[in-house]
């Protein structure tokens, strides 16, 4: 699979299901996958700026910057591999023109 941009996402803390697990339903791992999507560092984030301003008005003087992103939680069975997750993140969950993404697997039954 071609990775179109140098800033393509990172795959963190990956724990792959065993290859045999995808053949029978009973033995399929149901895993939770967290995909985090953040505006790229160089992209203006007016929502984050508004939050920074609000915090300062509320008296939280030490917060110098906030950036706002999104967190997706996916329940996936053992047939969904890392490559497919990367495809999901970069084709739909994130717009790679303006956003970076990161994937983390949290095994439900591990």
């Amino acid at each position: 699979m071609p990775v179109p941009v140098a800033t393509a996402g990172k795959l963190l803390d990956v724990r792959c299901p065993s290859p045999g697990a995808s053949t029978t339903t009973e033995e399929q791992h149901v895993a939770r996958v967290v995909v985090e999507v953040m505006p790229k560092a160089e992209i203006l984030d007016p929502q984050g700026q508004a939050i920074t301003g609000a915090l300062s008005r509320l008296g939280f003087a030490g917060v110098t910057d906030v950036r706002q992103g999104k967190r997706f939680e996916l329940e996936v069975d053992g047939s969904v591999g890392d490559e497919e997750l990367e495809k999901i993140a970069e084709s739909l969950l994130a717009n790679t023109v303006i956003e970076d993404w990161a994937i983390r697997r949290i095994d439900g039954d591990a």
Binding site: P46, A50, N95, V97
Partner: peptide, 17 residues
């Protein structure tokens, strides 16, 4: 059209919100 890749770039939240 930007999301579909027919035009480059993206439209983001207005500065000033």
């Amino acid at each position: 059209l930007c999301e579909a890749g027919l035009l480059p770039g993206a439209l983001t939240r207005n500065a000033g919100l």
